[in-house]
Design a protein around this nucleic acid. Structure first.
Length: 579
RNA sequence: GGUCUUGUGGUGUAGUGGUUAACAUGUCUCCCUGUCACGGAGAAGAUCGCGGGUUCGAUCCCCGUCAAGACCGCCA
């Protein structure tokens, strides 16, 4: 036996107990004939004291040594109100060094000085920091709460294969070469989509899985190569029922993990409304700065930029930022640069000062237009109006970004506020100019809205889907849909997407076959567990809630993966490196 | 694939066309009986990412390269 109690659990009620403790030396304070050591384990730290005969031993102890301590719990002469264990300390009677430690390359404390690269290289030390442990404990609690909820609701957890079949749609697949079948490859799942639908056909009715998913795309602060989804599928449930159930689950998570009672049901917004008002299909609704359509006001504009935009079926929209008129030429240039990054050709900036507009484009605005703007936008002194004129997508992207940018700049985003939202009625399809065809916005198995079915032949881009996303603070937490269960409709979908008979057979043959044998209406959703954990722990990056993440260039700085393999391995896999 | 930013003792930063390369923290030694970001005194520790160029002289300017970060593209 190593310990009788955890370090972080010692309290005044333990006084006079003889205890055994283990842990890491977090800090040593040598006062001459008295030495204090903060001993850390996963529960926290407690102070141990060395006196008299033990002082020589204490002098040999260094940070991060693992030690085994025997002693008596005593009340402190001077207490520390900042520590849960601050009323007591352990007077050492015997101490053993279990293992020693070299000087660590980073400071093991909540406030470490190391950059992320160093932290990832020595991740096992980074994870020794109490704040990192707290985040992973919190993540585990989120998973556990979800599992408990789904178990209680009668769901069965089923594991689906990691080695599967490559599918053409969606993200780039991670491929795994087959040794037994030269020239053939497995793909790692981007999601267990097909399998969970097959489980519905099999008749399980309620399935879930905490599933690892893989996508070979570039990383971001909120994107990893491999990530975890809480994947859910149900039979015989309506869209509303699935949403209500998801809300109940998130309610429970928020209550048990954060102690916050969120409002359910969540607000709902159609995709069209989200795009029109916020320029995003995952809007952060913790602040305003909504988009306004100004096309009408400028319909007779003499301003060349606006005029040409409207002729080319574009539109003119703007956002109003309050108390922003003090921004300098330099600030405006910076914001314009950012806008260009999101595809804008330019940005019209109008300051509202002394009941008039200032800015390089102000001279192109007629008196009539000015009046209309002031009335429509309810402008106040020192407001600044940012206008973008372009195609719908560009206008939305740019203004959607700018509203978030200014909200951050102005500190409108308060920590520990959570704005959940459903975005519903997504478009079924998305046109791709490059490939000159439609792609499924969600995936090819998404059920179109029944009332929009006739449009599938006449105007496929207008068809809405029974698809929904749950959004939190501007992040897409997850999404789902009802699935097609009529083989004829599925055939039609493949047709609209431009798949040939052969392609369907090769890629989805087994799946299409299964639908011939009695398919229940079904649907579900998948929640990005990493993102939920990131937001609930108040982290800026997914990497803070994943134990061993990849860095931005898809490498693991600790293990140095990916790495070269031997010629022997390559030969077995029938693979040749060409460049 | 692209844009931008960064690279200086173990760690994190400052700085300069000619320096003994600065500061904090960490490390080591000595002193200290109530510390808890302990305090005091001292010491060690850096080919200024790598290669080339400009220059009498480059850590500094230029080019290339490598590495890291943020974002765009991409992520059904």
């Amino acid at each position: 036996m190593y310990r009788t109690i955890y370090n972080g659990e010692l309290r005044i009620s333990d006084i006079n107990k003889e205890v055994e403790l283990v842990g890491w030396v977090a800090k040593k304070r040598n006062l001459g004939s008295l030495t204090f050591i903060d001993l850390r384990d996963r529960t926290g730290i407690c102070q141990i004291v060395f006196k008299e005969n033990d002082l020589e031993f204490a002098s040999k102890l260094r940070n991060e040594y693992v030690i085994h301590v025997f002693g008596k719990v005593i009340e402190r002469e001077s207490k520390n109100k900042n520590l849960p264990t601050g009323d007591v300390e352990v007077l050492v009677s015997k101490c053993e060094v279990i293992t020693t430690s070299e000087t660590t390359p980073l400071i093991i404390a909540d406030e470490t000085d190391a950059l992320e690269d160093t932290r990832l290289k020595y991740r096992y030390l980074d994870l020794r920091r109490p704040i990192m442990q707290k985040k992973l404990f919190e993540r585990a609690k989120i998973t556990k709460t979800m599992r408990n909820f789904l178990d209680d609701e009668g769901f069965i957890e089923v594991e689906t294969p990691v080695l599967g079949k490559s599918t053409p749609e969606g993200a780039r697949d991670y491929l795994v070469p087959s040794r037994v079948h030269p020239g053939e490859f497995y793909a790692l799942p981007q999601s267990p989509q097909l399998f969970k639908q097959l489980l519905m056909i099999a008749g399980f009715e309620k399935y879930y899985q905490v599933a690892r998913c893989f996508r070979d795309e570039d990383l971001r602060a909120d994107r990893q190569l491999d990530f975890t989804q809480v994947d859910i599928e149900t039979s015989f449930m309506s869209e509303q029922e699935i949403r209500r159930m998801t809300e109940k689950m998130l309610y429970k998570v928020m209550k048990e993990v954060k102690g916050i009672e969120i409002k359910i049901p969540f607000n709902e917004m159609t995709w069209q409304e989200a795009m029109d008002r916020f320029g995003s299909d995952k809007p952060d609704v913790r602040f305003g700065y909504e988009l306004n359509d100004l096309s009408d006001i400028f319909k007779n504009s003499e301003f060349k930029v606006f005029k040409e935009c409207l002729i080319n079926n574009g539109l003119i929209k703007g956002i109003v930022i309050d108390n922003q008129a003090s921004m300098s030429r330099k600030d405006i240039d910076k914001v314009t640069e950012l806008a260009k990054k999101y595809g804008a050709k330019g940005l019209v900036v109008l300051k509202f000062i002394n009941n008039n507009f200032e800015g390089s484009a102000a001279k192109f605005i007629s008196e009539l237009e000015k009046e209309a703007l002031v009335n429509k936008l309810n402008l106040k002194e020192q407001d600044v109006l940012f206008i973008v004129s372009d195609k719908f997508n560009v206008v939305s992207d740019v203004l959607g970004f700018l509203r978030c940018y200014f909200a951050k700049e102005k500190g409108l985003i308060k920590p520990n506020t959570f704005a959940f939202l459903w975005v519903i009625d997504f478009p079924l399809l998305e046109w791709n100019d490059e490939d000159n065809r439609y792609y499924a916005k969600h995936h090819p198995f998404t059920l179109p809205k029944m009332e929009d079915l006739p449009l599938l032949d006449t105007d496929p881009g207008k068809v809405r889907a029974s698809a929904y996303d749950v959004v939190l603070n501007g992040y897409e937490l997850g999404g789902g849909s009802l699935r097609i269960y009529d083989p004829k409709l599925q055939e039609k979908m493949f047709e609209v997407l431009g798949f040939s008979e052969q392609q369907i057979k090769d890629n989805f043959g087994f799946f299409v076959d299964a639908f011939k044998y009695g398919t229940p209406p079904h649907g579900g959703l998948a929640l990005g567990l990493d993102r939920v954990a990131m937001i609930l722990t108040g982290s800026d990056s997914l990497r803070d809630v994943i134990a061993f993440p990849k860095n931005a260039s898809a490498k693991c700085p600790m293990s140095d993966a990916p790495s070269k393999v031997s010629d022997k391995q390559l030969k077995e896999l029938h693979i040749k490196i060409t460049d």
